[in-house]
Design a protein around this nucleic acid. Sequence first.
DNA 1: AAGATTTAAGACAACTTTGTCTGCAATATA
DNA 2: TATATTGCAGACAAAGTTGTCTTAAATCTT
Lengths: 156, 156
Amino acid sequence: MFLSKSCLYGIRAAIYMASVEGNQFMSIRHISDTLDISFHFLTKILQTLTQDGIMSSYRGPNGGIMLARSPDAILLIDLVRSIDGDQIFTECFLGLPNCGNAVPCPVHDHWATIRTDIAQLLSTIKLSDLAARVNTFGHRLSENDILSSIKKPESQ
Amino acid sequence: MFLSKSCLYGIRAAIYMASVEGNQFMSIRHISDTLDISFHFLTKILQTLTQDGIMSSYRGPNGGIMLARSPDAILLIDLVRSIDGDQIFTECFLGLPNCGNAVPCPVHDHWATIRTDIAQLLSTIKLSDLAARVNTFGHRLSENDILSSIKKPESQ
DNA sequence: AAGATTTAAGACAACTTTGTCTGCAATATA
DNA sequence: TATATTGCAGACAAAGTTGTCTTAAATCTT
Ligand code: SF4
Ligand code: SF4
């Protein structure tokens, strides 16, 4: 897995938050129930995003969490950097000990290019793009198929 | 980390084996001592490579392990596939549940391209390329700087 | 002020990966 | 045959990630 589960959960939550009308505080419990993600685990992940200024939270009744800025001002790479760090955009491929980069191994430059491509890709994807796709095509965010929760084939 | 530690260890061991003159059985103990890798852990990894026909082993005195074919007939991707599986070359990026690929998310195609690039890259690198680099430039395979083990700064 | 609701924080458990240890099987040598 | 050397196999431990639970702090409602 290139991204950690924490990161995937955070991204799914962000997509969901961006996919509903109006940017209001929404309880983490609601999100975790809807997306079928562990509440406390998701709480920690969203805390990270809040601390990094991507989301903002409010305690108490009718409190919750919401996107700190417009979904088209949040890039996929922002979420990934916040949760997984940007180590994945800088780390080496073979991890030869004491490799000072001075004499690169044969994969070094190619890998650097690929890393850049990945960062580039994630920088071009806005949260709004992902949310739009979810809304338009009914993409799944949970096993339970919440967004189009009409036709879930039950028994028989 | 894109590759697991097991995979990195296996690759380092393979590079070392390819970097010494003559392809003879070499004891795993020697390799693990030289590269400063856990003996039993390395044993398991090399077992996998042996089972996949990339290396061959022999028990008993003067036994050990050796490359099953010439280092220029072993590709980096062979080692990776054997140890980490080829899941990393096929798995999705966002992992949205129930995503049937029919309606791809915005990263899908780009990620597929990048995955292909990675597989392509690993397919072009021969073990002999890596070993040559080690020999020529004295690249490090262990923290202890074995290949040029002359000048390791001791106390003072 | 009291109680309910909600995020924040941290302890703890389950699971996965990584690393260690013990015994076994095969082989060579004597 | 006895002994030493080596890979094979599996149990076990340590560490990291993932997931659960309890308590505290903030805020609203009454
Ligand atoms: S040359 Fe680059 S990719 Fe290769 S081991 Fe060194 S830092 Fe890693
Ligand atoms: S569209 Fe592709 S990358 Fe996106 S969630 Fe589905 S399988 Fe994964």
